[in-house]
Amino acid sequence: MATNVKENYLKAIFYLDKEDPNISLSDLSKEMGVSIPTVNSMVKRLQEEKWVVYQKYKPLKLTAKGRKTAALIIRKHRLTEMFLEKFMGFGWEEVHDIAEEIEHVRIEKFFDRMDELLGFPAMDPHGSPIPDKDGNIKPRDFKVLSDIEAGKVVRISALKESSQEFLHYLNRQQIKLGTVMEVIRIEEFDKSVQVQLKEQPNPMVLSADVSSRLLVDIL
Score class of each variant (00 low, 15 high):
residue 60 L to M: 09
residue 56 K to F: 02
residue 79 L to T: 09
residue 55 Q to N: 10
residue 64 A to N: 05
residue 67 R to P: 00
residue 59 P to R: 04
residue 58 K to V: 00
residue 74 I to H: 06
residue 53 V to R: 05
residue 57 Y to H: 09
residue 54 Y to F: 14
residue 76 K to N: 15
residue 74 I to V: 15
residue 83 F to C: 09
residue 81 E to P: 01
residue 54 Y to H: 15
residue 62 L to S: 00
residue 82 M to H: 08
residue 53 V to S: 11
residue 63 T to G: 04
residue 71 A to L: 08
residue 75 R to A: 05
residue 51 W to E: 03
residue 53 V to H: 06
residue 57 Y to L: 10
residue 76 K to W: 04
residue 82 M to I: 00
residue 78 R to G: 13
residue 76 K to I: 04
residue 75 R to M: 05
residue 56 K to T: 01
residue 81 E to I: 02
residue 60 L to T: 04
residue 64 A to H: 04
residue 73 I to V: 14
residue 65 K to Y: 07
residue 65 K to V: 06
residue 76 K to G: 01
residue 68 K to C: 05
residue 63 T to R: 02
residue 67 R to N: 09
residue 52 V to N: 03
residue 75 R to W: 09
residue 75 R to F: 11
residue 63 T to V: 02
residue 82 M to Y: 07
residue 78 R to M: 15
residue 59 P to V: 07
residue 56 K to S: 03
residue 68 K to H: 02
residue 83 F to S: 13
residue 60 L to D: 00
residue 83 F to T: 12
residue 63 T to N: 03
residue 80 T to R: 10
residue 71 A to G: 08
residue 83 F to W: 15
residue 68 K to Y: 01
residue 59 P to Q: 08
residue 74 I to G: 02
residue 59 P to M: 05
residue 61 K to C: 04
residue 79 L to M: 11
residue 83 F to E: 14
residue 75 R to Q: 13
residue 72 L to R: 11
residue 57 Y to K: 12
residue 58 K to L: 12
residue 72 L to D: 12
residue 82 M to S: 15
residue 82 M to W: 12
residue 51 W to M: 12
residue 69 T to C: 11
residue 61 K to R: 14
residue 58 K to D: 00
residue 80 T to A: 14
residue 82 M to D: 10
residue 70 A to C: 13
residue 55 Q to H: 04
residue 68 K to M: 11
residue 64 A to V: 08
residue 80 T to E: 09
residue 63 T to I: 04
residue 69 T to Q: 13
residue 80 T to P: 10
residue 75 R to I: 08
residue 54 Y to P: 03
residue 74 I to L: 14
residue 72 L to I: 04
residue 66 G to I: 03
residue 75 R to L: 08
residue 56 K to W: 03
residue 59 P to Y: 03
residue 72 L to P: 09
residue 62 L to Y: 06
residue 63 T to Q: 07
residue 80 T to M: 15
residue 78 R to D: 15
residue 76 K to E: 08
residue 71 A to D: 05
residue 82 M to G: 08
residue 78 R to Y: 15
residue 63 T to W: 04
residue 67 R to M: 05
residue 58 K to T: 07
residue 65 K to C: 00
residue 63 T to H: 07
residue 63 T to Y: 03
residue 74 I to Y: 07
residue 78 R to T: 09
residue 77 H to T: 07
residue 55 Q to D: 06
residue 72 L to N: 06
residue 75 R to N: 08
residue 67 R to H: 11
residue 55 Q to R: 10
residue 79 L to R: 11
residue 70 A to M: 13
residue 72 L to H: 13
residue 52 V to Y: 02
residue 70 A to T: 12
residue 60 L to K: 03
residue 83 F to G: 07
residue 68 K to V: 13
residue 73 I to E: 02
residue 70 A to E: 06
residue 52 V to D: 02
residue 79 L to N: 13
residue 70 A to Y: 12
residue 77 H to R: 14
residue 78 R to W: 12
residue 68 K to Q: 14
residue 56 K to V: 02
residue 54 Y to E: 01
residue 62 L to E: 04
residue 64 A to K: 14
residue 51 W to F: 15
residue 77 H to A: 11
residue 80 T to H: 09
residue 72 L to G: 09
residue 70 A to P: 10
residue 80 T to I: 10
residue 75 R to T: 07
residue 66 G to H: 02
residue 59 P to W: 05
residue 76 K to L: 05
residue 53 V to Q: 10
residue 57 Y to D: 13
residue 54 Y to T: 01
residue 63 T to L: 03
